[in-house]
Amino acid sequence: MVYHYTAIGDSLTVGYGALPGNGFVPTYRRLAEYHLQTSVTYDNLGVIGLTTQGQYDLISRNLTFRQSLQQANIITLSIGGNDLIRAARTTGVTSQHFNKALAHCQTNFEHIIKGLHQIKRNGNQRYIIRVIGLYNPLPQIEEASYYVQRFNQYIERFQSATLEVANIYPLFYGRERELLSLDHIHPNSRGYRIIADQLNRLGYRPLS
Rank of each mutant, 00 (worst) to 15 (best):
E33Q: 12
R150D: 13
T162D: 11
F151N: 07
Q159S: 14
I119S: 02
T51F: 06
F65L: 04
P137E: 01
I59L: 08
G203E: 07
R193T: 08
G133F: 00
R193A: 12
A161R: 14
G21P: 10
L36V: 03
T52N: 02
G80V: 05
F98K: 00
F109N: 10
A161T: 12
G80E: 04
Q198G: 05
L179N: 01
L12N: 12
V93F: 13
L45Q: 00
L31F: 15
M1S: 15
L182G: 12
R157E: 15
V40Y: 00
Q106L: 05
L36H: 06
I79E: 06
L45S: 03
A18P: 02
G174M: 08
V2M: 13
E178P: 04
T94D: 02
I79R: 07
D183L: 12
L180F: 08
Y169H: 15
Y16E: 09
I168D: 04
L69F: 05
P26A: 14
Q37M: 12
G54K: 05
I185W: 06
P20F: 02
Q96T: 15
A7K: 10
L19R: 15
A196S: 07
L202A: 10
S189T: 13
Q106G: 02
S181Q: 06
Q159R: 08
G133C: 01
Y56W: 09
F65Q: 03
A32R: 00
N108Y: 08
N99C: 03
V165N: 03
V148Y: 05
F172W: 08
L58K: 15
H184D: 11
S39F: 09
P206Y: 00
L77N: 06
N152V: 10
G123H: 02
Y192F: 13
Q149C: 06
L199Q: 03
Y42Q: 11
T41L: 11
L19A: 14
T13Y: 00
V25Y: 06
A103D: 13
A87E: 04
V2N: 14
R126H: 10
I185Y: 13
G23D: 04
L69N: 05
I79Q: 09
N122K: 10
L12D: 01
Q67L: 15
Y192I: 01
L63C: 01
T64G: 15
Q53W: 11
R205W: 11
S189P: 01
R193D: 12
L116A: 02
